[in-house]
Simulated scan of single mutants.
Amino acid sequence: MAWLNFADKSGAETPEPLLSDMIDGWSIEVMPRTSAKIDNFRAILPQGTRVYIAHIDGTPIEDMVATAGRLHAEGFAVMPHIPARSISSRHVLEDWLKRYQGEADVKQALLLGGGVTTPAGEFDSSIQMIETGLFDKMGFTRLHIAGHPEGNKDIDRDGSNRLVDQALLWKQDFSTRTDAKMAIATQFAFDAKSVTAWADRIQAAGVTIPIHVGIAGPTKLQTLIKFAISCGVGPSLKVLQKRAMDLSKLLVPYEPTEVVAGLSEHKAANPHSLIEQLHVFPLGGINAATEWMRKHGSIEAMAAVA
């Protein structure tokens, strides 16, 4: 691990982990409409970067598959969202998976319940999709699941995290029965301590699935607060509200420096932590996010950009 030395108050040098210790190997999330604005992803992403494709309810599957095919052709590992509540039947799920595989050579997927209140059909959760056996049957090599460091009020309305934890332990058990590699991709957060405390808690409960922590790319503070409110992040929202009260920071675009530094410090102090890498939500634009990651990544990561 690479280190920088900073003088503490006594004048002694204290090692601090580089941001690049956490940044190397990051993934990013796009949508069909945002990816259409990028002429060539190879010009801005390190070779082989995993690219998630967010499936917003109402997006035609044709647009999702076409985006997946384009990214695959440009040399990236493609991971589309499979939102349970937007899928009307097992037949539709199977059709989606066949199209992703046949037309875009997709072998990875993020399984999640989805943000729809009323399910379109028989699926209400990612567990129900997993139970169909279709992902193993069709040879998916990597399956990611959603993680909620600050809880999920759509599931546990009382804030107890009881049902969320039960579902995660079920998926932990499934991870021992599937040939696919698994990871937990989390909602974006702005408070490293809430993420690391959650990671420690689920690890103590028996979870061994690696965690890919969601962070927001650079954007206007007002935009970030809007997304934070709509996504229901708790302690993280308080961090943003405190920042908004500081007039010196109000007009300066948010950058994920503090949260990444906190995660890097935790990883350095806890080498067996489940926290494995970062997943970027480019809320201020794909170019702004990738530029920040390249700027703060290692020389090796920057050199990998095609």
Rank of each mutant, 00 (worst) to 15 (best):
M129W: 08
D136H: 04
T132M: 11
R142G: 02
G139C: 05
I145C: 04
R162S: 12
G147C: 07
G147E: 09
I155T: 13
F123K: 07
A146C: 09
T132G: 10
M129N: 03
I130T: 07
D156K: 00
S160T: 06
G151I: 04
S126C: 12
D124V: 00
S126F: 02
D136M: 13
M129K: 06
M138D: 05
A146H: 05
P149S: 13
M138N: 01
F140N: 02
A146K: 09
I155P: 04
D158W: 09
E122N: 05
K153P: 13
L134Q: 13
I130M: 13
G133Y: 11
T132V: 13
E150G: 06
F140Y: 14
A146T: 06
D156R: 00
F123A: 08
R162V: 08
I145T: 11
G151H: 01
T141Q: 08
G151Y: 02
E131L: 09
G147N: 12
D136A: 15
Q128D: 09
H148R: 07
G147R: 05
S126K: 00
S125A: 07
M138W: 10
H144R: 14
D156H: 03
G133D: 11
F135L: 14
I127T: 08
H144C: 15
D156W: 05
D136P: 00
L163G: 02
F123M: 05
I127L: 14
R142K: 13
L163T: 01
T132L: 03
F140V: 04
R162T: 13
G159L: 14
S125F: 10
L134R: 12
K153M: 15
H144P: 00
G133L: 08
L134N: 12
K153H: 09
D136F: 09
Q128F: 01
D136I: 03
S125T: 13
T141F: 05
F135K: 12
L163V: 07
G159R: 04
N161E: 03
I145A: 06
D154I: 03
E150F: 10
K137G: 04
A146S: 14
G159H: 04
N161W: 10
G139S: 04
I145M: 10
E131Y: 08
S125L: 00
D124N: 11
L163K: 10
H144E: 14
E150S: 11
K153D: 15
K153F: 08
A146N: 10
M129C: 07
M138P: 01
M138L: 15
